[in-house]
Each structure stands twice: as C-alpha cells, then as structure tokens.
Design a protein around this nucleic acid. Structure first.
Length: 583
RNA sequence: GCCGAUGUAACUCAGUUGGUAGAGUAACUCUUUCGUAAAGAGUAAGUCGUGAGUUCAAAUCUCACCAUCGGCUCCA
C-alpha cells in the first residue's frame, strides 16, 4: 500500500475510534486525530470519566460495529458560522474552527455513517470494507495544542494495517524490538543499574558497562586529539556567578540542581561546560594564528530533569557529554562546522551507525518572535542559520528543518536518532553561538593587531555517553564488536585437568591486553557455551585433551561459527586484528 | 511535573471470591570430569515498593507516598 493510502487508512481509523468513543462515553469531546508513523491517535476530553486500557476491548468492539455503516466519507465545505453551530458542543473543534477562520482557510466536515467530524480530508473511499486490521495500543496524557499551559487531554494510540497479516507482523515487530531494549539488556548483561537510594536518573555503571564505556571514551578522546582538539579537565561545579555571567541561569534555572550554599558563596552543579571553557580561554590573550581553538572534555553534567522525562540511560540526571567548544573566526566558522560534521560521520561509521538509516540531520532554528526563549539579534540569527545550512548543503546532506528547536544563543544542527520504541532523540549536536563571545568578551588579535570577536561552535561528537551507549546497546542488541565487548574471549576448560593450561593461556592473553576470562565451574561444556552465548561474548576458546596436547585453543565465534584449533599466537593475531579494525 | 500502566526471592514470574507466600533460573554445598546452547541432588534466600487505614485476619480491599515503564511537555 502506498504511504498516502496508508495515511488515509490510519486517519480514517482515528475518526472511527472517535465515533466509537463518543458513542460509548457520551459527553466526551474529541480533539485532533491524525495519522502518525505506524498508526494513529485521537485526543479526547473525557470530562470526569476515568478511562484506562481495560476499556480498549469495548472500544474496539464498538468500532467494528460502527464501521459497517461507514460506506463513504462525504466531505463538504461549510462556512465558519455553520461550522461553529455544528460543533458548539465541542470547545476544541470550536477553537480549531476559529483558528482556521483567522487564517482564512476553508473549513470542511465529513459525515461517515452519521458521525459528524471536523476534518481537512484525506480518507478512504470505502471504510466499511477497508478498516478491519486495527488495534488500540496505549493511553497517554497529551496537552491540548502541545502546550504545557493548556489542559491535558487523554490520547489513545492505535495502529491499523490493510491486512490482518500486516498488523500481526507489526505487533510481532514491536515485541521483537522489546528484546533490544537497552534497559532490558542492561540488566541481562549486567551493564548498569539504578539505585533508589542513590536517586533516580543517576546510573551506576557496573564493571562490564564501565569497560564498554571506557573503550568508547578512549576512542573518542584519541580521535579528537588526532583532529586538533585540546582535551581539558574542568570542575563539575562552579560559582553561580559563572552561570549568571553566561546568561544560562535564567534560561536553565528550572533544570539545574539548587545551589549549594557554603560560607557566603553559592555553587551550582554544572548543567553545561561552556562557561568553564570560556574562562579557560580568557586566561590568556589569543592570536588569530592559534584559531580555531578546540577545547574538548568528557564533561560530567547534572541536569534536574522532570521526573517523568527520565528513561533508562536515554535520559538521566547525571551524564557525561563528549563536549567541545571551538573558538573560531566568523570567516572560518563554516569550514569548522564541516570539520565537525566530518568527525561525526567518520566516528559514526566506525560505530556502525549509518547516515540516513540510523541517524539524520535536523537544522534546528530559532523563532525571532519568541524573545523570551531566544536571544534577540535578528542579523546574527540569519547569518548563523546561513552558515549551518551551507555546511549541510555543501555535503549534499538531506536534512529536515525545525522551527523553535534552537539553543537560546543560536541555531544548531542536531543529529537525530530513534530508540527501539521509535522515540526520537537528539544524539549529537553542533551549535553556532554568537551570544557567548559577547557575554564573555572573548577576543583574539588579528594580523592588523586589532581585537576581534570570534564565534563559538558548541559541539558534541558522540553526544552524551549514556545516550549513545543506550543507542549502541540497542543497535547491537548487546552483541558488541570485539573492541567494545566487556569480555572479548572466554576460555572453557572441559575438565578440571585442563584448568591449569587454560589459566596459562588466559594469563598470556591478559598480558597482551585482551579481556579474557576462564569459566572454571564444574559444568558441562554445553552449559558453559550456552552461558557465554547468552552473555554475547564474541569468542569462546575450548580447551580439552586435544588442545593440551597441541598447545592450542579450539575457537568458536559468537553465533556458532567454528574457527578451528588455533595456536596461541594465531589466536592473539586474530583477536588483535578484530580489535584494530574495530569489528 | 501531567496522563495511563506496573511493583511478590538476585532475575523471570505464579499466587483463585481476604485465611499471614510458591516455581524456574542464579547463589551456596555435595556428586559428576563431561567435546560445541541447560548434568543430578540438597541448602539457603521474601519488611509481598513504603506508610497509614478497614478487618478477627491484608500480597489480595481503601487512601497517601515512592520507584519503574509507555506517552505529553522538556532535552544531550
């Protein structure tokens, strides 16, 4: 089925659900009901009625009953006054009509099977025949018109497909996705935990999770240094005055941990590291010959996120950002943005993340009318947007543009990814900042001996370590490439008499820097293989009488492939090759 | 923060209309020494998320709170 037809099916089913709900729960008002990726939803104001997922069966049954009478969608245009009259009982529809009237857009209604609804169109020709394979999935609160200030409506999500088979396949896929969930795998593979006593949103990394994380951090630090970044360390907290100077405080106050008062001063756990790096820059005068100066840091940051926003490693309150602030002349800024995008692309490739498939670019713009959220300087905004857009265009990259997603100090290019549930998040970001240089009075001396104001590019190469780890766990379903795997090789002695030799091999591997372990339990080989497989260890080394005799290890790769009997030297070479190639 | 769901042993889960807890896995002990995805027996392990309340009696009913999950808002 074509995407457009599929959207019509989804949208039509949203209408059908609204009809069923309104019939079952008189007095309910329906708001918008669009098609979304993989399904649809409709928002309702149920008044005082409590609704839960246990009502789904009832609603679905009613939908099946009603749909029989839906022979077609009759769409007809009405005047604003007529429309208001028709929907006077529904304040949401009334508001939508008023909005349409203000914009001078035409107002259309449809009336399938006698269920009158306001709608801009896009429906099936014969719903009675076409809507059958649907399922209601979940219930959620959603603010009217997406604003926290408005009333929260009840949103019911559902999905629908042209055939039962496709619906079943989709539902099976949702189940399958759950197996990749980083929260589930994090527990099964013992990578990270949370403790209620430590506090929510504050992950504790186990030795195994820490190993993966450490490899990732070493890799990115080395890669950045190779590309001219200057890696630094700055403190996790700072005087409140620093954030007042940067101007972050009023914008960020809500999501910062409350100040720590000591003696006569107030300190904040830092929610970002930019001002620290600016103070570092200010410690010396700088020549144009030094630029761009790229301060980088694996910066531990603390943000007091709203409790409902926390989600596994995806969204936490303490995280480490692979952060950098590049101080660069305005002229060179576009080139530097390109350098950053190159870094992101190259690093992503190594991590097995593909542009277009696993991630995509979003040009996040400000909103000149919103002076509360964005620093007022129209000319600078225009210039900054141009720089970022050009950088994207020059690499022929596809990108989406999003209004009102910028930082307060400038627009940005966000690298977007989706988790197993299809939820989109910003993984990495490249931000163009023309505000901080002014606030911090950042300067460099040009060839003519004049003081010039640079711009700052805030960027993250692999984003927050927690978030990219969540993504990688899900991407690899826990089966990490050898260079990242917490245990790279597990040696399995068949009987106790093989342990001594196995320990010797293990010692040799560990001395060479491999993460090797021995399973000395008095279990059968099959059981040891099974456990190693469940832990997704890339290589198993089986050692029995034959191996003892030949001074060799019988190697089995993750997935079951038999690599045969290898000498210790050959084993070391093979492992090293995988690690060097990061595969 | 808001809407909905969930919370029983380290993990995955049972627990019927209220009669104060059970399985598998893991752990530990013993036996077994085994050739490519689960050997056998035994032992120990639970403030039933927390706190109130109703009741002769609460894992089960009521209320409040906490945490987790899916959304909304927000964000890396």
């Amino acid at each position: 089925m074509q995407k457009q037809n599929l959207d019509e099916l989804r949208h039509s089913t949203a209408h059908l659900m609204a009809a069923a709900v309104l019939e079952l729960f008189p007095g309910t008002q329906n708001a918008i009901g669009p098609a979304v990726e993989n399904g649809f939803y409709t928002d309702f104001d149920f008044g005082d009625v409590q609704i839960s997922e246990t009502d789904f069966t009832k609603i679905e049954a009613k939908m099946r009953e009603i749909v029989k009478t839906w022979k077609k969608f009759e769409v007809k245009e009405v005047t604003p006054d007529e429309a208001k009259k028709l929907f006077k009982h529904n304040k949401y529809k009334t508001e939508l009509i008023e909005d349409l009237e203000k914009k001078g857009e035409k107002i259309t209604v449809n009336n399938p099977g006698g269920f009158l609804d306001l709608c801009r169109g896009g429906h099936l020709d014969n719903p009675a025949n076409e809507i059958s394979a649907f399922k209601l999935l979940s219930i959620a609160g959603a603010y009217w018109k997406g604003s926290e200030k408005n009333k929260m409506l009840t949103r019911i999500y559902g999905t629908v497909f042209p055939t039962k088979k496709e619906l079943d396949e989709h539902l099976a896929m949702l189940e399958e996705a759950k197996m990749h969930d980083h929260k589930k795998l994090g527990k099964e593979l013992d990578l990270f935990v949370f403790s209620e006593t430590v506090g929510k949103g504050l992950p504790l990394w186990t030795p195994k999770g820490s190993t993966i994380r450490r490899e990732l951090e070493r890799f990115i630090v080395d890669e950045e240094i190779r590309r001219g970044y200057l890696h630094v360390y700055t403190p996790d907290l700072a005087n409140l005055a620093l954030y007042e100077k940067s101007g972050h405080y009023p914008f960020y106050k809500e999501s910062m941990y409350a100040p720590i008062k000591i003696d006569d001063e107030q300190f904040m756990l830092r929610p970002m590291s930019c001002p620290h790096h600016f103070e570092l820059y200010l410690s010396n005068p700088h020549s144009y010959k030094e630029l761009p100066i790229r301060y980088a840091e694996l910066a531990k940051l603390y943000r007091y996120e709203q409790s409902g926003e926390l989600a596994g490693l995806q969204r936490v309150r303490s995280f480490t950002l692979a952060d950098a602030h590049i101080i660069v002349s305005t002229e060179e800024s576009e080139k530097e943005v390109s350098n950053v995008l190159d870094l992101i692309d190259d690093v992503s490739k190594i991590l097995g993340i593909q542009l277009g498939k696993d991630y995509w670019y979003r040009l996040s713009l400000g909103d000149k009318l919103n002076e509360k959220k964005y620093f007022k300087d129209d000319a600078s905004w225009d210039h900054a947007e141009k720089v970022l857009r050009n950088a994207l265009k020059k690499r022929n990259a596809d990108f989406v543009e999003a209004e009102g997603e910028a930082a307060f100090y400038g627009p940005k290019i966000d690298v977007q990814m989706k988790n197993v549930n299809g939820k989109e998040d910003t993984a990495f970001t490249v931000q163009y900042d023309f505000v901080m240089p002014k606030r911090f009075n950042l300067k460099y001396i040009n060839a003519a001996g004049e003081e010039i104001q640079p711009v700052v590019i805030h960027r993250s190469s692999i984003g927050a370590i927690e978030r990219i780890m969540a993504f990688l766990i899900e991407k690899y379903a826990g089966a990490f490439p050898t260079w990242l795997a917490p245990v790279q090789m597990i040696l399995l002695p068949i009987a106790d008499r093989h342990i001594e030799f196995t320990e010797k091999v293990n010692k040799e591997l560990r001395e060479k820097g491999f993460r090797s372990e021995v399973d000395t339990r008095s279990e059968r080989l099959q059981a040891k293989i099974r456990d190693a497989a469940l832990q997704k260890v890339p290589f198993m080394g089986i050692i029995g009488d034959n191996e003892l005799e030949n001074n060799a290890v019988s190697v089995r790769a993750r997935g079951g492939e038999d690599l045969g009997s290898l000498s210790i030297e050959s084993l070391i070479n093979q492992l090293q090759e995988k690690i060097d190639k990061k595969i």
